[in-house]
Amino acid sequence: MADDAWTGQSATVIGNGLDEDGYIAREGSLGRVAAEFAPVVDAARERIAAAFGPARLHGGYLYGSIPRGTAVPGVSDLDLLLALHREPTADDRAEADALEAALDSAFPQVNGVGVLLFDTGTLLSELERHDLGWFVACLCTPLLGEDLAEHLPRYRPTSLLARETNGDLALALPRWRERLAAATPEATDSAADLTALSRAVSRRLVRTGFTLVMPRWNGWTSDLTASAEAFAVRYPDRAEQMRLAATVARTPTTDRAVLAALIDDLAPWLAAEYTAVHGEKAPRP
């Protein structure tokens, strides 16, 4: 077990998402899953086990609004992370895609299903210690199998954590601009593409805005409104833009002007400010 490692999900939360020792408390649990979503979670557990089996699967996790207990039936999606014994293959991805489609079609209370695939070597690597490792230990709720958090440290809301989680925002900007340019009125599925882009962009900007101020705020939250307000205290000149991003994250838009404002104005400024305050994320292969 890693030094200062997790010992379970029962830590007392004393405020700002920290436990009594000042570490970020794991934010979700199966006990917080609302009754409407319990059948979805049960089915996910059964189907993951059947699809991947112990030879491939080390463990499965929930994350997002469902294990936090804030999910809205018919609006919220189901987010899953699967830790495999070895590097995911094309066949593993195909199994995950089929799992997403099956769960999404079977349960109207979820609006989309997403499955992330990683191998345990990556999740426990030194390179990912303050990104994917932190994500598993703090934001993911064990669903089946062994909990990798037992092999990870506890985390404080430090500048190192900020840098390694969101210090690569600048890399996303060219892709966002390309997607916005491609979603012309004449393009097939333009509205769907703009909606998906607005959801992805706005969520990323709010998360990045929050982690920019996280060390000074001294805590953790996944609440979009709280994240935007924490940012607004430190950066009042950009407060309305971040509040707009939080609104779009909850209610995606097809308004190109709104997306352009987020992608071409707020995002470049945020990327530059983030680098100035916390530095750049360690490069990935």
Rank of each mutant, 00 (worst) to 15 (best):
D3Q: 15
A11T: 08
I14V: 15
I14N: 07
G15E: 08
N16V: 10
L18G: 03
L18H: 09
D19A: 08
I24Y: 13
G28Y: 08
G28Q: 02
R32W: 07
V33N: 00
A34K: 08
F37Q: 00
A38Y: 07
P39S: 09
D42C: 01
E46Y: 03
E46F: 05
A51V: 05
G53Q: 10
P54Y: 07
P54G: 12
L57Y: 06
L62G: 00
G64W: 00
G64I: 00
P67A: 01
G69D: 00
G69R: 00
G69F: 04
T70Q: 10
V72M: 09
S76D: 06
D77K: 07
D77R: 02
L81H: 10
L81D: 01
T89A: 14
T89N: 13
A90L: 15
D97A: 12
A98E: 13
L99R: 06
A101L: 08
A106R: 04
V110C: 07
N111R: 15
G112P: 05
L116S: 12
F118I: 14
S125V: 06
E126V: 13
E128R: 13
L132F: 15
C138S: 07
C138G: 02
C138Y: 06
L143S: 03
L144G: 06
G145I: 06
E146R: 15
A149R: 01
H151W: 14
P153Q: 00
Y155E: 13
R163E: 10
G167Y: 09
D168L: 01
D168K: 11
D168Q: 07
D168M: 10
D168S: 14
D168E: 04
L169C: 01
E178Q: 13
R179I: 08
A181C: 12
A183S: 13
L197R: 08
S198H: 09
S198T: 10
A200V: 14
S202N: 05
R204G: 12
L205I: 09
G209L: 04
G209A: 01
F210Y: 13
F210R: 04
V213S: 02
V213L: 12
T221H: 09
T221W: 11
T221V: 06
S222T: 15
L224G: 07
T225E: 13
A226Q: 14
E229I: 11
E229G: 06
A230N: 06
Y235H: 15
R243D: 05
L244T: 03
T251D: 14
A257D: 15
A257C: 11
W269C: 01
A271V: 02
A272G: 04
E273V: 05
T275I: 11
H278T: 00
G279Q: 07
K281P: 05
P283D: 02
P283S: 01
R284L: 11
R284K: 07
P285I: 08
P285N: 02
P285W: 10
